[in-house]
Nucleic acid binder design. Structure first.
Lengths: 233, 233
DNA sequence: CGTTGCATTGAAATCCCTCAAGCGAGGTGG
DNA sequence: CCACCTCGCTTGAGGGATTTCAATGCAACG
């Protein structure tokens, strides 16, 4: 039994400005691990800002980032946006025990994504209690991240938020001391509950303090990790 | 096999001011449901502000509020506190797939809590995949709440936060139009990422606007639900 | 009836946002 | 190849929402 045949493009782009040029259907099937579960998956490419799924949409698939980056977000009626999380290569998103997504997901940059039917994972969980535990653990990791994010949004200053963000990203990239940000200042702002201007000012300030270097707006080099760690509080 | 014998007081109070007067060990065993799982539990009483478990502590038990209210929180090194969640009668907290708690939990007011060994739930999950799914669903509900909270902290104004808080609590209490808040202004502030003064000012302002009435500081009567819903955005 | 702890209110300060202008890299067309 | 445009980012000035600091009010309790 292969899942591949059943994979098809999800969530057709709704906004006019969407780019479809790099949308391709399942290429070579590949084995992908979701927790302890390993299953054949299709891969799809999404171009920058392309929607992967929408808020309130039925959760048909679970996704794993192969390359690129993804954001999940919610938008209030007046346009204010809160980004829940960024997902980097190797990370899983869209995993739901329930039937519908509570966020929309979009590609932050051109991205390659492995997809698997949610029902296939559910089925694996029904067959094998360890698979079930593993999925539970994945949801719990999400919860842990959300809870850290809560503390950040509720009780940290703008500077602390930016520093926490950079250190978190650095850790997840395991990238030594330099970092290429896949996301824009607007994305960072909407993740940190700030405005682009404030984010920009905090970057500049950290640079003046010799804590970081900014060879260009998307690249951050940690210059004084000690100082950053102290701002992390 | 009864769990009761193995229950004992957890997390001895660390701060000097703690009250122990109403700490009592397992009384009558009672059947308690955790998701779809029903198991015999012990109950314990905790007095106001008493710690139920500590941050980073091993997650030995899972808890369900019988009466009273509970808060889970994290504290930064400089004393800033973020309350993750409040738990009302019927709600479950401290459920972890992993081994350790990521928050501390304290009684908001004198509370009666049912306890069950985490390993007992884990065991039920290993025996029965539906039990496992049910626990997963409980964690996911937590995640959903955390994500709503994220949006609130990241993108809502002080007034919107207070209104959202009141409406959420009202819904969970199913209490018609009046509400007896179990928690102090400080708890509310630390939940909403505000200060007590701001919370107090927002209450006063809503009262001036004839949206609510405040017979006393702990009691809130919804006077104009329509107006409140609009502020909810 | 004083004390104690929480809540409210006011005034001043602060942090972050808003509005606006300028800058720089990348792309396009002449 | 260079002028020109666009888009994202940065920077500045001013303003506003929330915090901080301080005083007062109020109810419970001994």
């Amino acid at each position: 039994m292969t899942m591949i045949d059943t994979v098809h493009p999800v969530s057709p782009a709704r906004s006019a400005g969407m780019q479809w040029r790099s949308l391709t259907k399942s290429e070579h099937p590949r084995l992908t691990t979701f927790g302890t579960i390993e299953l054949p998956t299709a891969t799809m490419r999404f171009s920058r800002d392309q929607e992967i799924y929408g808020e309130e949409e039925a959760a048909e698939f679970v996704y794993k980032v192969i390359s690129g980056a993804v954001r999940t977000s919610k938008i209030l009626s007046d346009g204010r946006r809160q980004i829940d999380s960024f997902y980097l290569p190797g990370e899983i998103f869209g995993l739901q025990s329930g039937e519908t997504h509570r966020f929309s997901a979009e590609a932050v940059v051109d991205a390659e994504i492995a997809l698997i039917k949610r029902t296939a994972l559910k089925a694996a969980a029904l067959r094998d209690v360890h698979a079930a535990q593993s999925l539970w653990a994945l949801t719990e990791r999400q919860l842990g991240r959300a809870q850290d994010h809560l503390l950040l949004l509720g009780r940290r200053s703008a500077q602390e938020r930016v520093v926490s963000f950079l250190l978190d990203l650095l850790e997840r990239c395991a990238a030594g001391t330099a970092l290429d940000l896949p996301m824009s200042r607007l994305d960072i702002a909407d993740y940190l509950g700030l405005t682009i201007e404030t984010v920009s000012r905090m970057f500049s300030q950290l640079e003046r303090d010799r804590s970081i270097e900014l060879p260009n707006s998307r690249r951050v080099v940690m210059r004084n990790r000690q100082a950053l760690a102290e701002l992390h509080a």
